[in-house]
C-alpha cells in the first residue's frame, strides 16, 4: 500500500509528489498520457519565478526529474475511479488497481470541443485547439478563431501576425476579456469580428475548407471560406470518473477551496481541476504543496 497516490503528472501533481517525498511518504503518480500536462504546449513561459524564459517542455522535464530523483514512482495508466473504505483507498486504472491511504486528484482540464459533426476527424486537417502550436502552418492563409475569452483574443492576435485574414466568431456582441487586446485587434485591418454567432458546421474536402456560422439573433447562416479554425471556447475539467465519490460544482470542477480539501477525508484536489479563480502554472504548483501537506497530515493521523 502506498501512502499517497497522486492522479495526474502535471505541475500540480508533480509538485505534490516532491512535497510528499520530502516528507518521506511513499508516492505513486498515475498519469494517462505523459508527464507535464498542458504546460508542455507552451513554447515560452515568462511568468514563473526563477526563470525569465523556459519552454513548457523543459519546465515539465525538470520537475519530473526532480520528483523522480526524490523517489516518486510514476506509472503511465489512466485512473478511472476511486473507492474509499476509510483508511484504505483504491484507485482503479484501465489496467490495475492500487491501494493507498490518501489520494490527490490533479487531473487538470482539457480543451472544450465545439461538439459539431466532423470535428474530431478534422483535427490536424484544419481544426486546432492551440494557436501557438499550429499557427505557423497558416502563414498567409485565412483562419477563424471560435470564442471570445482571453485565450481566443490572444490567439487571434497571434494569428493576425501570421495569417492573411483572421475572423473572430463570438457568440456575444461584446467581450469580457482584456480590453487592451480587444482594442488592438480592432485596429488590425486583417481582423474581422463576427458577432452573435456560432460555428454550426465544418465544411471539408480532405481538409477544412470553410465554416458555416449562424447568427443567433437572426438565424441567418453564412459560409466563410477558411483554411483553419482555432477553437478557443474554454476548457473542461476531467473529473467525471470521480463524480460518484467527490462533489463537483456545476461546471464539473471539484468543489475544493484553497485548502484543497474535498468532501471526502483523505482525498484532496490540486490544480486546474478544482474550483478556483486563478489557473496558472504557479497556482497549480502552489496547490501541489498545499494538497501534499494536507495529505501527509492525514496519513500521519492514521498512524
Amino acid at each position: 500500500m502506498y501512502d499517497i497516490i497522486i492522479i495526474g503528472a502535471g505541475p500540480a501533481g508533480m509538485t505534490a509528489a516532491i512535497y510528499a517525498r520530502r516528507a518521506s511518504k511513499s508516492v505513486l503518480v498515475l498519469e494517462a498520457l505523459t508527464y507535464g500536462g498542458q504546460i508542455i504546449n507552451t513554447p515560452d513561459i515568462e511568468n514563473y519565478p526563477v526563470a525569465a524564459h523556459i519552454s513548457g517542455f523543459e519546465f515539465a522535464t525538470k520537475v519530473y526529474e526532480q520528483a523522480e530523483a526524490l523517489g516518486a514512482e510514476f506509472v503511465f495508466e489512466k485512473a478511472v475511479g476511486i473507492t474509499d473504505s476509510g483508511t484504505c483507498k483504491k484507485v482503479k486504472t484501465t489496467e490495475n488497481e492500487y491501494e493507498c491511504k490518501a489520494v490527490i486528484i490533479a487531473t487538470g482540464s482539457a480543451n472544450r470541443k465545439l461538439g459539431i459533426e466532423g470535428e474530431d476527424g478534422l483535427v490536424g486537417r484544419g481544426v486546432s485547439y492551440c494557436a501557438t502550436c499550429d499557427g505557423a502552418f497558416y502563414r498567409g492563409k485565412t483562419v477563424a478563431v471560435a470564442g471570445g475569452g482571453n485565450t481566443a483574443l490572444e490567439d487571434a492576435l497571434y494569428l493576425a501576425d501570421l495569417a492573411e485574414k483572421v475572423y473572430i466568431v463570438h457568440r456575444r456582441d461584446s467581450f469580457r476579456g482584456d480590453e487592451t487586446t480587444v482594442n488592438t485587434l480592432k485596429q488590425r485591418s486583417n481582423v474581422e469580428f463576427v458577432y452573435n454567432s456560432n460555428v454550426t458546421k465544418l465544411i471539408a474536402d480532405k481538409r477544412l475548407t470553410a465554416i458555416e456560422v449562424t447568427d443567433k439573433l437572426t438565424g441567418e447562416t453564412r459560409e466563410i471560406p477558411v483554411d483553419g479554425l482555432f477553437v478557443a471556447i474554454g476548457r473542461v475539467p476531467e473529473n467525471r470518473g470521480f463524480a460518484q465519490l467527490i462533489t463537483l460544482d456545476d461546471a464539473g470542477y471539484i468543489s475544493a477551496g484553497e485548502d484543497c480539501l474535498t468532501n471526502v477525508p483523505g482525498i484532496f484536489a490540486a490544480g486546474d481541476g478544482r474550483t478556483k479563480d486563478v489557473r496558472q502554472l504557479v497556482t497549480a504548483a502552489s496547490d501541489g504543496a498545499v494538497a501534499a501537506t494536507a495529505a501527509v497530515r492525514f496519513v500521519a493521523s492514521l498512524e
Binding site: G124, S128, C133, D134, F137, K206, R207, G228
Partner: peptide, 12 residues
C-alpha cells in the same frame, strides 16, 4: 513535405 501531405498540426 508537410504542405504536400496536408500536415497542419504537430506532432503528426
Amino acid at each position: 513535405i508537410a504542405y504536400k501531405y496536408n500536415v497542419s498540426s504537430i506532432p503528426c
